[in-house]
């Protein structure tokens, strides 16, 4: 399956996790990876499944590298009805009011433009005891299986 991992990052933690996911799945799939700040809404390709990895920064805001993408989405209003994505969030429950609001906003942005979310949005907590990849690898496996089934492809 063609998969593109898109990450929105501020401190680099989401970038590192995105690269880890790439290493984990590239044996079985054709995987590309891009920082959201280098990705334009016009680049979305219906033949590709998108894995989004996004952190939260400041007061529940999108991380810096997702901001230009959000601005471009607002300006270009692309039709993403043929696009499937799944999203993994990074956050810190020390700031519980806004915990994982960055990825939440990014998912809402995708859905608002017609994209289909596959699976639940999974959130890692920097103040918890789990390693992000220990949650993200099973998440990636699950959503890839789900989208394979949905699109009638062999996994």
């Amino acid at each position: 399956m063609k998969i593109t991992i898109l990450y929105g990052t501020e401190t680099g933690n989401a970038e590192m996790l995105a690269e880890d996911i790439q290493s984990e799945i590239e044996g079985d799939h054709e995987v590309e990876i891009s920082n959201l700040e280098d990705f334009a809404p016009a680049d979305f390709d219906a033949d590709c499944f998108y894995l989004l990895v996004c952190s939260t920064y400041g007061d529940g805001d999108l991380p810096a590298s997702a901001q230009p993408f959000a601005d471009a989405m607002a300006a270009e209003k692309p039709d993403l009805a043929a696009i499937h994505f799944a999203i993994f969030g990074l956050g810190d429950s020390e700031y519980d009011e806004t915990f994982n609001h960055g990825p939440k906003k990014l998912a809402e942005l995708m859905i608002a433009h017609g994209a289909h979310q596959v699976g639940e949005r999974v959130a890692h907590d920097a103040s918890g005891s789990d390693m992000a990849e220990d949650l993200a690898f099973p998440w990636a496996e699950t959503v890839i299986a789900e989208v394979s089934e949905k699109l009638g492809e062999a996994a």
Binding site: T11, G12, N13, D92, S93, E94, S127
Partner: peptide, 15 residues
């Protein structure tokens, strides 16, 4: 000391 989440960047630095 009570902002351990912020210290998580040390994982990147270890790499």
């Amino acid at each position: 000391a009570d902002h351990q989440g912020t210290k998580g960047v040390a994982r990147q630095f270890a790499r």
